[in-house]
Amino acid sequence: MSYWRSIATIVRKDLLVELRGKEIILSVSFFVFLMVFIFNFAFKPGTIPLEVMTPGVLWFTFLFAGMLSFQRVVSTEQENGCLDGLMLCPHGRDVIFVAKTISSFLFVLVVEVISLPFFAVVFNLSFFPVELLLIIPLATFGISIIGTLLAALSMNTRLREVMLPILLIPLVVPVVIAAVESTGNALSGEGWASVQPWIWVMVIFDIVFLVIGLLTFEHVIEE
């Protein structure tokens, strides 16, 4: 079976499992709505310019939503020893890593798409910058790569709920900074030229951590 067909089969299975339980998308969307709602009360209107505040709030919320999703996507494989089932299939362990990263990415992306209109209403955003169509997937993919790897790493630890944020947040700082800066520039209407350098930061970040994940995932899940 080809590499990509195996990946597609695992992703399709993850989507089917989620469709049955709706655990990730429903609970994480609810979490995002709550966060946005609370942030709206936390900042007094007019004290901080919207284009300064909104990108930080947006990515802070998405990062925490991601953390909830990554843990769940990986822990699904722990019930009934399903991770062993995947590891017994005739493919390299990197197939599991890529498939789980894509599943995590898709779940977080769906939550982001659901919550963006709510975000726009609460923070009074009058337009949707087209640059976000590139910024959001790139940053989300970068966070998903590290999130999946670290969720697998912390899967068998006693304090896994605490371990994931402790390990994840310092590592995603570069991609979150790039996402916040580029989102801010896009919301200010500064155009592609101001966004482009940050896009490159995210692309390089995604490539570097994808390679690291492919090289290390095997050892992470086997031990």
Binding site: M1, R5, S6, T9, I10, K13, L16, V17, R20, G21, T76, E79, N80, G81, C82, D84, G85, L86, L88, C89, P90, H91
Partner: peptide
């Protein structure tokens, strides 16, 4: 193995179809 390696939320058939695809 001791554990069934089956996904709880899927039917037995869906589980078996998944593994069939993985093993081509």
């Amino acid at each position: 193995l001791h554990e069934p390696l089956l996904y709880n939320r899927l039917t037995a058939l869906e589980n078996l179809q998944f593994y069939s695809k993985m093993f081509n």
